[in-house]
Write a protein that binds this DNA or RNA. Structure first.
Lengths: 338, 338
DNA sequence: TTGTCTGATGACAACGTTGTCATCACGGCC
DNA sequence: GGCCGTGATGACAACGTTGTCATCAGACAA
């Protein structure tokens, strides 16, 4: 069943095959493939011809073993369902691919225990860098990363304890800005809607800062509704319906994200409430859909693509150290819902 | 500057280090790490202790080189911006992670030339399988994949020429179903809205089948608007506005996807057109947002998560061969927009 | 002519792991 | 008691590549 020298599973051409066909040494083929400078034109032509004939593709696994470095970047995100992370990933990818790197994906499902396994798994491939979501990583993760001294960039948050560089926004500042935006426009009976038991943690930071600033401005937060289900428009719609039933005098709502806010807006429209006249709606993230709504959604726009791109750029440029902490800021979109 | 034996870049512990510390051979450590059966309890304990002391993590690169197989699956998608692919990726990830595999991502930006490079790049890591988006892959891709005989699953489409297994839906059938749905409900003056010059190709298949079936049912397609920009609600809104301005007698629109359809619905609402009374709106994909709209969107729902999950499962189960062609079908959502 | 320098090419070992085979101790069986 | 099977352990080579050093031919100046 098995020969002494077990037939290779695949008959993928190797450096040796190309070298034999071209009548040169393996190392010369290697040099040609990597575009080394000290190779004669004749050699280059012979090798390229042979390589094409055999359909040779360099084996990066072997190369990575020898050189102790790969062109893979490990990317760890909590979820792909939430619209935010695909956009971040898009930003990461755009920079990585421009530098011949590629992303290896890990999804934690917001489970810290699982995250440790995911990181371990990804690290076992000796990636040239790692992008983690959120601050305050588990000590186990910190140890593993340190043991291989893999460069790390953490995204989303600029607050909290960071292992490596960080790229994101200040969620406390965002919460305060939301409060200011509402109060400045005359709203005085605000509420808050979140989802999924406030995962990730940074949404809680926003809510607390929001409540704090509201109190400071003399318009205290009157109601808070944190749903159990993950964020979605239907969930946001249900949350607002419940809030208004309990207290019809509420005049505005700040949402943990735009998915929820859109649902809230739909509830208002279906219930015949004028927006922003009877109910102000303020979202978070600034998704493209918002501006197409019958009443354009006002939202705190976050630079999701830029976060990913910046994080990747830090890795590429070798600046993934704790010294770099980049706050990309946020901005209020030109909506009409508050 | 450089020692004769260049100091290792990282001082990552190896099998040898663990073996020395535990006073056993490297191969025994390897066996323990992989949970081989023929290892004494004493040996196992000694090794685990040593490994933990050193913070040892197996080097998968070396392992993959030796065994000629990795636990990585290459996933090639055209874009991350479009909501469809994150969901597919989510499905893929959910199955892969359950089997200790991980996804390496490649994004083609709908550029066939770039796709070839992406595939080459990913293949150079000898993935245990590859998931491609769409049928009719470039011959160059077919050759590369064949040269390494990497198992391939192609998603989205069940029609067209396939390299390996395929998981998706029949887009022609979807186009016909859309036509039937409109005609069955009494619409007689239908239009079609697409975007981004009909990338990917499969959207064209739907449109053609839609037009063909409409003609067969005696309600020919009256207008078609293909936008240049990528799909989004604002683009869909603009498209519908343009169509109705050119021909106010149109009574229904089938959209290439829900992003566009939502925009169309918003236009109708803003323009004071009753839906579906004055304008029927039929989307494609069945995104969650649809059901939260003031007028729930009727759409042809596609099994995006299931497509990814099924594709990954085929790979895991070794069924990624052309013999497997899985049509996951679609269904009309319970909306109220047609 | 001779020596030296440069650029091209090759031989060799090593990266860290695992498959294969060999070795060894032990226990049960005839 | 000798034999054999079994289970545990180790030695060795190999996966495909690349860094290091050696070699060699040719150019050029002295």
């Amino acid at each position: 069943m098995s020969a002494p020298h077990p037939a290779k599973a695949t008959d993928r051409a190797t450096l040796r095959d190309v070298a034999r066909l071209a009548g040169v040494s393996e190392i010369s083929v290697s040099r040609v493939m990597r575009g080394a400078s000290n190779v004669s034109l004749d050699m280059r032509e012979r090798v390229v011809l042979a390589a094409n004939t055999l359909g040779y593709t360099p084996n990066r696994v072997a190369g990575a073993l020898k050189t102790q470095q790969s062109n893979q970047v490990a990317v760890v995100v909590p979820s792909m369902s939430h619209a935010v992370f695909p956009e971040v990933l898009d930003g990461i990818e755009s920079v990585l691919s421009a530098h011949g790197l590629c992303a290896v994906l890990g999804v934690t499902r917001y489970d810290p225990a699982h995250e440790i396994n995911v990181v371990r798994e990804l690290l076992s491939w000796s990636p040239m860098g790692m992008i983690l979501t959120g601050a305050d990583a588990d000590p186990a993760i910190e140890r593993m990363v340190a043991a291989q001294d893999t460069p790390v960039v953490q995204i989303m948050d600029v607050e909290g304890r960071h292992i490596g560089a960080s790229v994101g926004i200040c969620h406390r500042a965002a919460g305060r800005a939301a409060a200011d935006a509402l109060v400045d426009r005359g709203f005085s009976r605000p509420a808050y809607v979140g989802a999924w038991r406030e995962r990730p943690v940074r949404s809680r930071l926003r809510r607390e800062a929001f409540a704090g600033q509201l109190a400071a401005r003399g318009a205290p937060l009157l109601a808070t509704k944190i749903m159990d289900a993950p964020s979605s428009a239907p969930v946001g719609r249900a949350a607002v319906a419940a809030l208004l039933e309990a207290d019809p005098t509420l005049d505005s709502v700040f949402f943990a994200n735009d998915d929820l806010a859109v649902g809230g807006l739909f509830h208002a429209m279906a219930a015949g409430l004028s927006v922003p006249g009877q109910l102000g709606i303020l979202g978070f993230n600034g998704i493209p859909l918002g501006e197409a709504l019958p009443i354009p959604l006002t939202s705190l726009a976050t630079p999701r693509f830029a976060m990913g791109a910046t994080a990747a750029r830090l890795l590429v440029e070798g600046k993934a150290t704790a010294a770099h902490r980049i706050d990309l800021g946020f901005s209020l979109t030109a909506g009409a819902s508050i």
